[in-house]
């Protein structure tokens, strides 16, 4: 390799020495070695999947260890920051009493029913405004204004309107989830290349078939992005809604733990919210794989 390089470099300098004969002076180029060789191989790229997985775990494990150490060594009061083992114990306690299981069911049911109602509403309005001029004129303006209202700011209003029971909680989740899917559905339908629509018209599609065979399938990725955002919003709204007089659910566990100064249970509850978020994200990935097999970035099998 280095020999070949040397020859090349010599060739270049020969060319330079000859150049004046042709009337032009060509400078011998500075060469860069891009050939494969040991010096250039990044060893980490050749690491096995297991090595890489272990490395990914490294930082979280270190953090947990440091956390445990800080508590055990008495650097921070266990009252302020209980060690990971205490959090595990709190989980154990919640599971043995059955509180955690029933709380997860209650909270998931709240988030899901809000998401289903709010998502359907957003989808329907998005399609109506995206496909029909009338829907656009009637709904898009108000929707664009209303989406600027932070849903959490509606809590006092909803308490006055709906009281402090389930209705207020679900209503909050509905308002939080309707907008992301509305906006993405509208944008997805409006964003379809007019050239595709023209082709559809040429091949005899009426409006209904254009919507069913071209517009909806092509807008589906965007609609699912909206659903993903809505699912995220449903959890945010759930956490906020469960601060209103919760008598069941994860919010209730948190409220009681707060009253009893049980920081270990508070942290456990926060972790449960995070796990719910992860589960929703995984579910959305599954849905996207199911409905968008044609996207080249999602390869099945």
């Amino acid at each position: 390799m280095t020999d070949a390089l040397a020859t090349l470099a010599e060739g270049a300098s020969v060319a330079r020495s000859r150049a004046p004969a042709g009337g032009r002076i060509s400078r011998s180029p500075q060469l860069q070695d891009l050939s494969p060789g040991e010096a250039r191989s990044t060893r980490w790229r050749q690491a096995s999947p297991w090595q890489r997985r272990a490395t990914r775990l490294l930082v979280p494990v270190l953090i947990l260890a440091a956390w445990q150490f800080v508590s055990e060594a008495g650097l921070v009061s266990t009252y302020v920051l209980p060690p990971p083992t205490a959090i595990l114990a709190a989980f154990h306690e919640l599971i043995v009493t059955g509180e955690l299981q029933s709380a997860i069911v209650t909270s998931s049911a709240r988030a899901l029913s809000g998401l289903v109602i709010g998502g359907s509403l957003g989808l329907a309005l998005g399609l109506f405004a995206g496909l029909w001029k009338l829907g656009d004129d009637v709904f898009d303006g108000p929707m664009q204004m209303l989406r600027m209202v932070p849903s959490i700011a509606l809590i006092p209003l909803f308490i006055v309107w709906f009281g402090i029971n389930e209705t207020a909680k679900i209503a909050l989740i509905i308002t939080a989830t309707a907008f992301p899917i509305y906006l993405n559905t509208y944008a997805g339908v409006r964003g379809i290349d007019n050239k595709l629509i023209e082709a559809g018209i040429i091949f005899g599609l009426d409006h209904k078939k254009l919507a069913r065979r071209i517009i909806l399938p092509t807008a589906l990725p965007s609609i699912l992005v909206g659903l993903r955002y809505s699912a995220g919003s449903s959890l945010l709204a759930l956490v906020a809604a469960e601060q209103i007089n919760a008598r069941s659910g994860i919010g209730y566990i948190l409220t009681i733990a707060n009253q009893n100064q049980r920081v270990d249970i508070i942290i456990a509850g926060i972790i449960v919210y995070a796990l719910l978020g992860l589960a929703l994200a995984a579910f959305m990935t599954f849905v996207e794989r199911l409905f968008l097999p044609w996207r080249t970035d999602i390869v099945l099998g």
């Binding site: 595709l196 091949f203 599609l205 078939k209 065979r213 399938p217 044609w294």
Partner: peptide, 13 residues
């Protein structure tokens, strides 16, 4: 139409 298989595109109408 990217979301339709080749044959469905051929007989889109």
């Amino acid at each position: 139409v990217p979301a339709k298989r080749v044959w469905q595109n051929v007989v889109i109408g």
